[in-house]
Amino acid sequence: MCIGRLSIATLLLLIAMPASAEDASIARGEYLINAGGCVDCHTEDSDDAIPLTGGRAVESPFGTFYSPNITPDVETGIGAWSDDDFVSAFWEGEDPNGDHYYPAFPYTSYTGVSREDLLAMQAYLFSLDPIDKTTPEHELAWYISTRLAAGAWKMKNFDSERFVPDPDQPEQWNRGAYLVRHLGHCGECHTPRSSLGALQYDQELAGNVSGSDGEKIPNITPDRKDGIGKWSASDIEYFLQIGMLPDGDFVGSDMSAVIDHNTSKLTKEDRLAIAAYLKATPPLSSPD
């Protein structure tokens, strides 16, 4: 009788455990999807858009990209993707057919994200309602209008490489580096690019005079004149939480959406990790 009861209890526990572990993974995935800034690009810029159904136009010097639907709809979204398909998109910049993504999808940064984090993000996306929505084809300059061009670009400008913590740096710095350089992909906007769109890592985070949508993107290195060297770690953390600059102004522009969908949803610890990492980067002058 006693054994019987125990067995039932064990059985119940076994049934309950995978469900709660899955829930935890989904919750973690949601946090990481926010940290990865996925919602902003994968949601159309209109008040009634359904999040993550894609269709947002991203203007670039090479034409207009339209983000895809990443809800789990089998036909128009990512519902048919395997775990490896999902990971490969981020690590290799390839779709499940092996076709190359254009770097408008920032796999150049996402390649550093861990498999564990990616699968949690996938678990969250797969927990959403599948939405049947076909997004427009990209409208690109003729010379990059085939995926072969994306492949050639990758050969020259992309290395598939995971983030490895630096044992000589504090844990907070390493967390910040992971968020800034990989998951949060700050450099995709804040680092200048070559005429062919390659990130100029020797000027990492020094700003971009011709960002997407024609915006001038500021220098966020600790240079006191050109960058944010006068900002304290608290100023950076507070800015990422509510969008206030140290002088009391409030941000508009694309960064406003980044704060709404991404950084305001992070824990204070993660925002402080971002601040600690940014403050420890080399101060650089802005490019001309």
Partner: peptide, 21 residues
């Protein structure tokens, strides 16, 4: 004050041409 900030940011996002930030 957080609510004030949210309102300022929301308005700047839609109605102010931000050139620098």
């Amino acid at each position: 004050f957080m609510n004030v900030g949210e309102a300022c940011k929301g308005c700047h996002d839609s109605f102010r041409e931000d050139s620098e930030h």
